[in-house]
Simulated scan of single mutants.
Amino acid sequence: MNRKLSTIFMVVFVALVFVACDGDKKKNNKQQSLSTMEESKGDSTMYGVCGDNTGMHVLELITVQGDTLSYVFDVEDGATVKGGILAGDRLAVVGYKNADGENEATEVLNLTTLMGKWRSIDKQFELMEDGTVLSGVKEESQPWTAWKVYNGKLLLNKDTFSVNALGADSLYLENAHGIFTFTRQK
């Protein structure tokens, strides 16, 4: 009887282990397919240089592929343009096609203004043109080493930030942990 009971126990145990492993496998597959879906969506940001025909309500963007696109935008809405627009500056533009069939910019981030040296109370870093970040604080435990703009957000390593404001001497970033203020370092 004891042998029969231990055999049943062993079969149930093996079955439970098999089910648990299969559940983890399905969970991992679900996570992998979710991250694959996120990657397949791609970057909705258009990159290029601000063209000479940029005016009060129209932005001319010469894309990295060499195409010239026109975007309408609301110049009174300070949230749309971050870092100003000047012919020749590198830009990241997020937008959509409006009801009139025009490209409408919802966010314009001036990458030329964004690059450079920034500091806060506990961080000092420089955003380089090649996508690297140079840290000015040697003791920092997890310094940022790379940056890029993806879907209109600033990625510093794996940290994702919204750029709330960008000026000649100030940068305001926000994520789930709060709002971070930086000033231009000379």
Rank of each mutant, 00 (worst) to 15 (best):
T68A: 13
Q142R: 10
Y47E: 01
G88S: 11
A99I: 14
K30N: 08
V81Y: 02
E38L: 14
E104M: 13
T80G: 05
Y150S: 10
K27D: 08
Q31R: 15
R3N: 08
V58P: 01
Y96W: 09
V108E: 01
T160W: 02
T181K: 11
S40Y: 08
D74C: 09
S70V: 05
L134F: 10
T145F: 04
V72L: 04
E39R: 11
W144L: 06
V81D: 03
V11D: 11
L173D: 09
G83F: 09
D67W: 00
V133Y: 06
M115L: 05
T68F: 07
L16H: 04
G84I: 07
G66E: 08
N28L: 09
P143R: 04
G131R: 03
A105W: 06
T80F: 05
T68E: 13
F182Q: 02
T181C: 07
K158S: 13
G131K: 03
K82E: 11
Q31L: 14
D67E: 14
S162R: 11
V81R: 01
G88V: 08
H57V: 10
W147H: 11
D77V: 01
F9A: 14
K4Y: 12
T106H: 03
N151Q: 15
L109E: 01
D24P: 00
F180K: 00
L173Y: 11
E174M: 03
D130F: 04
S170K: 10
K26V: 11
T132N: 10
